[in-house]
Every structure is written in C-alpha cells, then in structure tokens.
Amino acid sequence: MGSLSDAPTPAVSISGLTCGYDVRPVLQDVTLSIAAGQFVGLVGPSGAGKTTLLRVLLGMVPRVSGAVHVLGTPVRHGPPAGIAYVPQLETVDWNFPVTVEEVVLMGRAMKTWPWPWPSQADRTHLHRILGRLGINNLARRHIRDLSGGQQQRVFLARALISEPRILLLDEPTSGVDVKTRDEVLHLLSDINGDGVTVVLTTHELNAVAAHLPQVVCINGGVVAHGDPDDVFTPDVLSRTYGADMQVVRQDGLLLVADIAPHRLRERLRHSHEHQHAATEPWHAHVHAHAVPAVTGSAPDGEP
C-alpha cells in the first residue's frame, strides 16, 4: 500500500468537462481533482449529476468536451483499470437466481478465464473478502434472503475482490436503517484506511456527508469542494439545492436544515386553526416535529 506522499498523481482529475446523454448536458464545465487515498462524498439534489459524475469516471457517459484522468490515465471509452463500482441496491434484480458467492465472484469474472467454475485463487480471495466483511456464513444463501446491510456488504465484497485502488459507490446508505448506515460508513472508512480512494454519492447531508473528510457539492457542475465544515454554508447549500438552507453549529457538530418544511408546518398549522375538522394524526405529526432546525431531515431535493 503506497502512502499519500508516494503517489502524487491524483486518483481523479477532471478538467473542463461537459457531458450528457442526449441533447441537454447533465454536467457543465466541471473541474475537479481528488487526491489518492481520499474519502469523498458527492452531494446535491436529484438530477444534479451525482451518478453521472461517477459514470464519467467509468467512461460510460458520452463527453462533449473536457478531459478525465483516473490514476493518471486518460479515460476514453470503457472503464479504466483499478476502479470498482457499487451500484444502488434499488437497481439490483433480487429475484435473479444467484447466491452470495456467485455475486461476489463476478468481481473476478475476467481473472480466471476460461473455466466456468471458480479457481483455487478465486476461492482464497472469496473467503478472505467474505471473512473481512463478516458474511462468510452467508456464501450459499440466495441474495433475496439477506438483510439490507448484508446485501450492501455482498455488493461491496464484489467490488473489493477485484482489488481496486478507487472505489465508487452510488447511494450506499439510501434505503437502509440507521444501524446499517453506520456499519457501512465504518466499513468504508476501514477500506479507505487501507489506501483505497473512496468516492460515494449521498443525499443525506447530516447523517453521511457531514462526517466525511471531504464533500463535493454538485448541481449541474461543481458548486464547492472541500471539508464539510468549510463547504456547508447557507450560501453554498442554497446554490446547490436551489432552496433556503440553515446551518447550525454547536459543540463541534454541524447540522444542516431545510427551511421549507418549517414553513410548510406554519401553513399547516394556520389552515388547521381554520378547519376544526382536523384529524388527530395530523395533530400528532405536527407537534412531534416542533423543533425543525435540529430534527429537520436533510433535503433530498425531490421536486
């Protein structure tokens, strides 16, 4: 494992990139450099281009202009070497007839051609990775018979078995409970500790992005890049999300809140007073969230 000082080449270097799928560009004039060994979160509203930026690094998005280098090598058509990708779990076909070990071994599909069965080296790698992620006992299970956290680990294992230097993850914490989310983040932090550059997308500002060493705010381009303490300001966040945001700092904690739900509640309360036919559940709902600045969830930018 090379230390940071041995590897002056950035893991990712993008300059003047404009790209998209059809006529309208998704990302415009993006310039971004991610040092080797970093742990970076890409944040922004839906449709801001977070996933597209990941796919740019994989060489899977048509480019209009600009240059993309991964580990010092220009990315043209197709994925560069040394990169691994964990897709959103929602995109997985859970009814597909595969077991945990079959999925994980896909990460070595090109390494032990031509036999259809796993080689001795495949087996060694498989058990090492499954053991490390604590899912060795699940190897023969069907992927549908797993918890959310276990499913995330399986796809992480498939990425790690290819021994990547850069790990890309699309929304690794979406749709999982709080405990699983924390486990996944700890795992990723361990992996990053081994020298692997980790880049993930997330829409959870408070729960995920605020804990990462670096964030990149994206909305059709890069709005800001740096330590969340420096980057998460009302101005940057408003430009990223196109909505008014508040930032609360207390005892070294950073909390971001969307002001809009607060206003919505004001309006609801207002209409409530005028409509005596209001039902009890609404009452409970409004009062349970009486402290919007602290408990208000991060906006996910859904229209």
């Binding site: 899977m60 691994a84 897709p87 071994l105 599909a109 090109m110 259809p116």
Partner: peptide, 20 residues
C-alpha cells in the same frame, strides 16, 4: 467458456463492463 461473463452481463448489464 463464457459462463462467468455471461452470468455477470445477464445479472447486471450496467456494471459488468466496469469489471472488464
């Protein structure tokens, strides 16, 4: 002879090319 690659491509056509 293409068992592993076909399996990956059928299961996850988007991601399989990432792994070569």
């Amino acid at each position: 002879f293409a068992y592993k690659q076909l399996l990956f491509l059928t299961f996850d056509p988007d991601v399989a090319p990432v792994y070569g």
